[in-house]
Each structure stands twice: as C-alpha cells, then as structure tokens.
C-alpha cells in the first residue's frame, strides 16, 4: 500500500514536471509545477521526512506559486497565450481536487510511518546545533525580500517624464 502510494507520488511528480515544461500556457505550467510540489510533499512524508514535507508543501507549493502568478500578472506576457476566463473554474476545481486527494492520503496513511519518534531529536538538532544556519537563512530571506522590493519598485529613479509601464523604457537590444 505504502509502496504503491510512493510510486504514484513519484510518477505524478515527474509527469507534472513534464507538463510544466511542455505546456504553452503559463498558467497551466505554474499550476502543474504546484501539483508536482504537492506530490513531492506526499512522497517526502511517505519516505519518512515529515518536516521536509511540510516545508515543501508550504514554501514550494504555496509561496513560489504565488510568486510566479504575481510575475505573470505583472509582466502581461504575450509570448504564450493566456488561459481564457471560462477555463479558470476548471483549473481551480482541478487544483482543489488535487489538494483534497493529498489531504485524504495524508489522513489515511498510518501516522507511525512518518518517524514521529525522531521529531523531538530533529527539533533539538535544528534549533540548537543548526542555529547559525537558521540565522543565515533568516538574513537571506530578508535580503531576498529587500532585493525584490528594490527591483520591482515602480520608479527606481525619478523620471523627468511621467510615463510608466513596460513600454516606457523599452528599447531594442542588438541581436
């Protein structure tokens, strides 16, 4: 049972990755990347790494997906055709179905599989022996946030004319 679920999670991860690369629509690409993250979180949990599974589900399937959606809505990319408005409920339904299946699998699986006995030891190791790493990651998070805020600022320097938007500063690059 567990082996079959693990196999299914790995296969779904690879297939969703293929779809994410092959799809022309950016929205489909990003949503299938999120699906790959959810399936990978299920695999992490089944393999005995529950905290890594939680981080994968929260950060990779949540935060990174929101960042990608933010970017394609900011840039209004026209290289690939966007999904039409009538298809959006279908995409939401598929994503919700995937999340529901993930939650059901999470509940049905025997909780002793996840290696609960090592959670306390892992927490001690993380917060005591790895405290410098955690501090470094916290500093990196703040640097990343500052860099994103700085780079995506509407006006990096005060322009003489009042033009904004992507076409204001666009110029051709030499081929």
């Amino acid at each position: 049972m567990i082996d079959q679920l693990t196999t299914a999670a790995l296969v779904v991860t690879v297939l969703a990755g293929l779809v994410a690369v092959a799809a022309r629509d950016f929205l489909v690409s990003i949503l299938s990347l999120s699906s790959a993250s959810v399936a990978l979180a299920v695999y992490f949990y089944l393999a005995g790494a529950p905290i890594a599974a939680v981080f994968e589900a929260v950060v990779a399937a949540g935060l990174v997906t929101v960042l990608f959606l933010f970017v394609i809505s900011l840039t209004e990319t026209d290289a690939a055709e966007r999904i039409s408005g009538a298809k959006l409920p279908l995409v939401g339904l598929a994503l919700g179905l995937l999340l529901g299946v993930g939650i059901v699998v999470w509940v049905l699986v025997d909780p002793t599989v996840g290696g609960r006995a090592s959670d306390v030891a892992f927490a001690e190791t993380l917060w005591s022996a790895r405290s410098i790493d955690l501090l470094a990651v916290t500093v990196l998070v703040f640097v990343g946030v500052l860099a994103v805020v700085r780079l995506t600022a509407e006006q990096l320097e005060p322009e003489s004319d009042g033009e904004t938007g992507p076409t204001a500063g666009s110029r051709e690059v030499e081929p």
Partner: peptide, 26 residues
Amino acid sequence: PAGSQGIVVLLILIDAIVVAVLLGVA
C-alpha cells in the same frame, strides 16, 4: 530520509529565495 531533513529544509528555503530574486530580476 530522516538524516537529511535539515539539509532539505534549508535547500527548500534557499531555492525559494533564489527564485524570488530571479523573478524580481525578470
């Protein structure tokens, strides 16, 4: 699986930061 959890958590966070900065550059 159990021994590499700390490294995996750190790698997930670092990867999220890298992608955030690169999307800002984009």
